[in-house]
Amino acid sequence: MEQRETSTGTSAPACSISRVEHALGVLRGRWKLLIIHHLLVRQPRRFSDLEREIGQVTQKMLIQQLRALEADGVVRRIVYPEVPPHVEYELTAAGRALATALDALHDWSVQARHVDA
């Protein structure tokens, strides 16, 4: 991987803007990070559990966001052949790998709050 010099004089891996744009595209949307967070806390989850946990999201929007995450390989939809249908969602390996990034966002948020105070 390429290295670049930072403002502090140390070297860091060069960042490919196209990869960052792709990652942001996968996560774009008001609800996707919350869905991923809830699946990181406990999985698998039924649709109704996610709907209850993310109270402000509409059913239509939750379905759209889950389908998009599934299409991007972040979430896996598991359908059990029962009546009534039983559907659960879980993170794929790619989805679970987002835990590090979400932890970093959390830490940044805590630090930024203390800087502004």
Rank of each mutant, 00 (worst) to 15 (best):
E2I: 01
Q3E: 15
Q3T: 09
E5Q: 10
E5I: 08
E5C: 00
T6Q: 02
G9P: 07
T10S: 11
T10N: 11
S11H: 04
A12Q: 12
A14L: 10
S16I: 08
S16M: 04
R19V: 01
E21W: 02
H22V: 02
A23G: 05
G25H: 13
G25P: 03
R28V: 03
G29T: 04
K32I: 05
K32H: 08
I35E: 07
H37P: 00
L39V: 09
R42M: 04
R42C: 03
R42A: 12
R42I: 06
P44S: 13
P44I: 12
R45A: 15
F47N: 04
F47Y: 15
E51I: 02
E51H: 09
E51F: 14
R52M: 12
I54K: 13
G55M: 03
Q56M: 07
Q56R: 11
Q56C: 05
V57S: 04
K60T: 07
M61L: 10
Q64P: 00
A68V: 07
A68R: 08
L69Q: 04
E70T: 15
E70P: 10
V75C: 11
V75K: 14
V79D: 14
V79H: 02
P81L: 06
H86V: 07
E90G: 07
E90H: 10
L91I: 03
R96T: 05
A97T: 00
A99E: 15
L102K: 06
A104M: 10
A104T: 10
L105F: 10
L105E: 01
D107M: 10
D107G: 01
D107W: 12
S109A: 14
V110I: 14
V110F: 08
Q111G: 00
A112G: 02
V115P: 01
D116F: 08
D116Y: 00
D116N: 00
